[in-house]
């Protein structure tokens, strides 16, 4: 639970509403991510929505609270891991004969666990996009303007 110990961030109304909606936004992002191969959405959209839930915390409660939940070091690790995971999935396609081959069992249509490597690729893209977007926002927040000489 997010505690409201310092006076940073926005007013009590915004903080209360944020506390109520933040979990729903995160959950919706996960839904979009996991159903990427059967409904509109996917890794990119899911990653953006999940990153937005963290950005939401940062807007309402200030940067310190948000960076406690997810700090820069871990975001950087998630970002690179996402990209490496995606390339690994592409390399694993060589087991099926070709680069990027969908070598896993395709399963039933419209089932959650179907479509082979697409779900895994979506998760990799989610890591890359989510962490990347969050880092971009953090960079904008932490950037300090140097004095002009």
């Amino acid at each position: 639970m997010i505690n409201n110990r310092d006076s940073q961030g926005m007013s009590v109304i915004v903080k209360t509403i944020t506390r109520l909606t933040i979990g729903l936004i995160l959950l919706y992002g996960v839904y979009i991510l996991l159903h990427g191969h059967i409904t509109p959405g996917g890794g990119f959209a899911g990653g953006v929505i999940i990153a937005l839930s963290f950005i939401h915390i940062m807007l309402a409660f200030g940067k310190n609270v948000a960076l406690e939940k997810l700090n820069q070091t871990w975001s950087k690790i998630f970002e690179s891991t996402g990209a490496l995971l995606f390339i690994t999935i592409a390399f694993l396609g060589f087991f099926g004969g070709v680069f990027f081959n969908n070598f896993l069992d395709k399963g039933e249509h419209f089932e959650l666990f179907s479509a082979g490597t697409i779900l895994l690729s979506n998760i990799a893209i989610f890591l890359k996009v989510g962490a990347g977007l969050f880092l971009l926002f953090v960079a904008l927040v932490l950037f300090k303007i140097g004095g002009r000489k």
Partner: peptide
Amino acid sequence: PLFVAISLATAFLISL
């Protein structure tokens, strides 16, 4: 495909 894959993998391994 390795020309793109190796250089991308190297880039992200270095950044990690």
